[in-house]
Design a protein around this nucleic acid. Sequence first.
DNA 1: CGTTCATGTTTACAGACGTAGTCGATTACG
DNA 2: CGTAATCGACTACGTCTGTAAACATGAACG
Lengths: 134, 134
Amino acid sequence: MPVNPEDDSSERTAPEISGAEHAVMEALWQRSPLTAQEVCEEVCGPRGWSLATVKTLLSRLVAKQAVETEPDGKRFLYSPRMERSDYVGTESRRLVDRLFGGRAAPLFAHLAQSEALTEDDIVEIEALLKELKS
Amino acid sequence: MPVNPEDDSSERTAPEISGAEHAVMEALWQRSPLTAQEVCEEVCGPRGWSLATVKTLLSRLVAKQAVETEPDGKRFLYSPRMERSDYVGTESRRLVDRLFGGRAAPLFAHLAQSEALTEDDIVEIEALLKELKS
DNA sequence: CGTTCATGTTTACAGACGTAGTCGATTACG
DNA sequence: CGTAATCGACTACGTCTGTAAACATGAACG
């Protein structure tokens, strides 16, 4: 059963963002539009990248239509074209599906067991639960 | 800052399991040891793979020391060498770190908002929280 | 006006990944 | 015993990813 590899139909599948690309997206989600230079100032340091690398990543993101450009004189300003919350949502769901059979509760059980929940987390989650039940 | 690409030291970094490899791991976590043939019976159908593909994935997993082999006559029996719960843990934490600044509460908030939480999930999580506070 | 600087585009290249075919040995069957 | 089936090992190959250099082009500056 061949999985239609390039679905050009209206069904817009969220573009796949790779790890390195994600770092660039984070910079743009934090503040945009940015020039390639500015993106580099945000991410090159921490990741040990060169400006060239950022340029490549930006190009690829533009190709994937995850980022859009706006000309500004001779250069471009880059802005995210997808909402961070959407990205976060699909990534979270992907994980929950892959590892917990699509159920969120087991994920929590796991986080709880592995002590990945701080006191603050617990308090906050309680508050959210209370709100949800209203 | 070059990131030591092959750390052969005692610091055992959890091996990276790719998407396809993960499907094989799931089969082995469900039941093991299994022959390559048996793994294929579990996963080849759903993923549309050939036995050859499974063999390759098993080899790579053995190379990564995520799976171990035990000779059984002319063939091998394969067993997972890492606990599923460990894998699930590191993957979960990776996501929480990457997307939610390491805090679990925002993840919860997100799942809640995106209606990814069922009634059952909520009940279960409440129970877990109650238990945690004891 | 010529040279340098900034910037996007093109090209590069090694390693991982998805997917699988081929080869050599071993076993099983007739 | 000879041949077919089986199995792991090796090889293959296109794509994606991480990382970046080379190049072209237009702007800025002296």
